[in-house]
């Protein structure tokens, strides 16, 4: 079975900033892939390059086994994909129904307008002008437009950015329904939760590279880690040997100058309560204590490191 998307050695620079650095990527039929990354990490650039909207500096992109440049000429290839661009908006003077009507005319056998209205909960606002709709309603309509042509593959660029929690969860239902209908999805997001809720595979884009490529289950295990930050005179090797402790990092170790022999320890633990009990029992002088969830970036760096160790 041919992959839906196949990318090799893809690079893209803006000025002298390398946004995408020799990326390889495949998306198979049935996958729901989330590209996760901070704002400015290059997620949108990646997606737009896949769609032929941006020209890469180098690398090959194939959609359904055809070079991406074929999108320009082949309506049938364009008909296989549905797209929600980031912050795209429609002429505000037309109603949702009018937009659906027009977009339906682009396809030989579009999904019936009535089905779209029912499936994506558009009924209450379908006859209002686009400019009067709320952010969530606009995104639902744009999603319906992406689905008009019964696509096999959906591209969603930050589909829920700017939506409130309720609207975001409502929107996730649309994506789940599409996935349940057998449509593959590639979406970008900077919400870990969104990727976790929807994706079968999560890729983290940072400094032009995918620093992780994992299932949400692997990700979840990782996100249980907590980071204990404290000043202590305990030996870091000893702490590292305790159960549940994954890793200990020593920062600015300078025992003699500090008098007490204290140093700053960063302890990553799966059971922070257990680890804290031991720490406090053994070091009565322990100070400047804080416990925080690991940052996403740290979790993924660890994840990749662990996977490397296992392999």
């Amino acid at each position: 079975m041919q992959p839906y998307i196949e990318v090799s050695q893809l690079s893209k620079t803006y000025g002298n900033h390398l946004v995408l650095d020799q990326l390889d990527f495949r998306l198979e039929s049935g996958e729901i892939v989330a590209i996760l990354g901070a704002n400015g990490a290059g997620k949108t650039t990646f997606l737009q390059t896949l769609l032929g909207m941006l020209r890469p500096d180098q690398g090959q992109i194939q959609l359904f086994g055809q070079p991406v440049s074929a999108l320009k000429q082949q309506m049938s290839l364009r008909g296989k994909i549905g797209v929600m661009l980031q912050q795209a908006s429609l002429p505000g003077n037309l109603t949702g129904r009018e937009h659906l009507q027009l977009f339906s005319a682009y396809y030989p056998a579009p999904m019936p307008t009535a089905d779209l209205i029912a499936n994506f909960g558009l009924a209450s606002f379908i006859d209002q002008r686009f400019s009067t709709l709320s952010g969530g309603q606009q995104q639902s309509l744009l999603f319906a437009l992406a689905m008009v042509g019964k696509p096999q593959l959906l591209f969603l660029d930050e589909p829920t950015v700017g939506l409130d929690v309720a609207a975001r969860q409502a929107f996730w239902q649309h994506i789940r329904a599409a996935a349940a209908a057998g449509i593959s999805v590639i979406l970008t997001t900077h919400y870990l939760e969104e990727a976790d809720q929807l994706a079968s595979r999560i890729l983290v884009l940072k400094d032009g590279h995918f620093i992780a490529d994992a299932s949400p289950t692997a990700l979840k295990a990782q996100s249980l880690l907590r980071r204990i930050d404290c000043h202590s005179s305990l030996d870091s090797a000893l702490v590292a040997s305790w159960p549940y402790v994954r890793q200990v990092e020593v920062i600015g170790a300078n025992p003699s100058a500090d008098g007490e022999g204290s140093q700053r320890l960063l302890i990553d633990s799966e059971q922070p309560e257990q680890t804290l009990r031991q720490l406090l029992a053994l070091d009565l002088a322990l100070s400047q204590l804080s416990v925080q969830p690991l940052s996403l970036e740290h979790a993924f760096l660890q994840l990749t490191a662990n996977q490397g160790a296992m392999a």
Partner: peptide, 14 residues
């Protein structure tokens, strides 16, 4: 500017 033209170009809209 609002991306409407780009949407049409990716959709099979002549």
């Amino acid at each position: 500017t609002q991306g409407w033209l780009a949407m049409k170009q990716i959709a099979p809209a002549p």
